[in-house]
Amino acid sequence: MKKALLGAAFLLLFFLLQSTVFKYFAISNIGPNLLIIITCAFGFMYSDREGLFMGFFAGLLCDIFFGPILGINALIYMFIGFVNGKFNRLFYSEDFILPGSLFLSSNICYGLVYYILIFLLRGRFQFTYYLMNIILPESIYTLVCAIAFYPLLLICVNALKKSEQRRP
């Protein structure tokens, strides 16, 4: 129960930050994708099930406001959360290489899938442009923001896990 509340609170916070404050700090019109951070983090900190749900709701929130079709972001984020959950076995709290590389590669995958489904199928074939100007800058900017937000998430999740373990 507490896990769900924590997840919902962070989801709302990150979504609001991503669509308002971080758009003001956009570098050449690219803002970071904070929802990827929270989806991946819940994935590899808990398990594939939590990552799956977090991804589904993050994507759904995105779709309600901004998506061209309801459900497309939900699907992509859900799969990202699920795959990140498979990495739970390799994860430990003091590590930063695995989370960092997961954030980067998940964001790139999200960009690629979104581009293929929405742009490529409508005949926009200039893939190099989208890769160099949107997908890669967004991934790097997200990684930089993860350096700020990931420790916060880690502390909260670890505190929650400890308090749940204390209860027999």
Partner: peptide, 19 residues
């Protein structure tokens, strides 16, 4: 969880078609 993933993926596809 893999069945959950499959069910939710179907729900997403249904949402896309309906919307």
């Amino acid at each position: 969880s893999k069945y959950l993933l499959f069910i939710l993926a179907l729900i997403c596809a249904a949402l896309m078609v309906v919307s």
